[in-house]
Design a binder for these strands. Sequence first.
DNA 1: ATCGCATCGTCTGTTTCGGACCATGGGCGA
DNA 2: TCGCCCATGGTCCGAAACAGACGATGCGAT
Lengths: 176, 176
Amino acid sequence: MSSGRLSTTSYVVLGTIGLRGPSTPYDLKRAVGHSVGYFWSFPHAQLYSEPERLERMGLLEVETEQTGRRRKVYSLTDEGREAVRAWLAAPTHEHFEMRDIAEMKLFFNELGDSGNIVNLAREQIKQHEERISVYEDMQRRFGSEPKYARRMIPLRLGLEMERAALRFWSSIAEEF
Amino acid sequence: MSSGRLSTTSYVVLGTIGLRGPSTPYDLKRAVGHSVGYFWSFPHAQLYSEPERLERMGLLEVETEQTGRRRKVYSLTDEGREAVRAWLAAPTHEHFEMRDIAEMKLFFNELGDSGNIVNLAREQIKQHEERISVYEDMQRRFGSEPKYARRMIPLRLGLEMERAALRFWSSIAEEF
DNA sequence: ATCGCATCGTCTGTTTCGGACCATGGGCGA
DNA sequence: TCGCCCATGGTCCGAAACAGACGATGCGAT
């Protein structure tokens, strides 16, 4: 029951266990991979080490499977549940950070050949179109199930961002 | 002239020096702070240590000021300039990552009180409105100067993203 | 001349990151 | 029923990123 600060990673682990119920690190890795991982990626090694830390802090408890690989299954303790609730209730003054290599390259493009821009734009158009179709698929498949409806809300934000980016890069591709 | 991989930080340093000319780490910190730092932030300590690394790699050269604080002034070598050009010319398959705490909280909101959403939305509306006015200001001040015109292009993307986010959170605030 | 403070820079411990690499055991062919 | 393949599941490591406290320095006003 040691202490320490909780990072975003911590809340992703706690939150995901909260939503899915008792989970192994591998479960977390998969769940994160097709949910929040789309906009904020976490190295999988983190999803193995973080639960250990949270268990030491008393926010999770472990149980070892009795069969097969005897994997460790983590579940929320009352403290863990409370930590998530407190986090959700706390104000969020942070602004998002949009780490975008393409935008970087566009910013510095004067230092290279101007022909680079068109290729950059074309590739981004492709990326965003692909992503949009993934998101639309998710929306089609789960959007109507009441059980998942609330979790689909952030997807709308994701879609809007993708569409804004797609519009932008399309206009760049035309201009240059 | 050791070697090693170049990270995004490396290109930000090389690129910024390319745009501004010879710079001290402090110059870099300031320049980054009101340019790419808006969408991708770098701890300032990095902007002090990275130039050293790049100098060891032969991509930058140092000169020490003869007066005052005798600060180190870094400039691009031919190899450095070439490294940036190669980076700009290389394809970018990566998709942006949008690290957004608010979106995280929205995703996990079922685990807390539903009243949290409205507060979250309100705060985000404020954040995005503020950011939009900062960007619009930049556009007003530098948008017309031909010298900076090209560097202002990515700002349009930033603005579109902000406006998309603002629309999203406004709709959330209304729905809940 | 000195003091105040904006400018400028360093240091430290921790977490993140990417990716190579390792281990396990259930099912399938012989 | 053996064994071996390979998808599933997990560990490890070195390098970089990170936050933020703290330290230094010189210039301008009094």
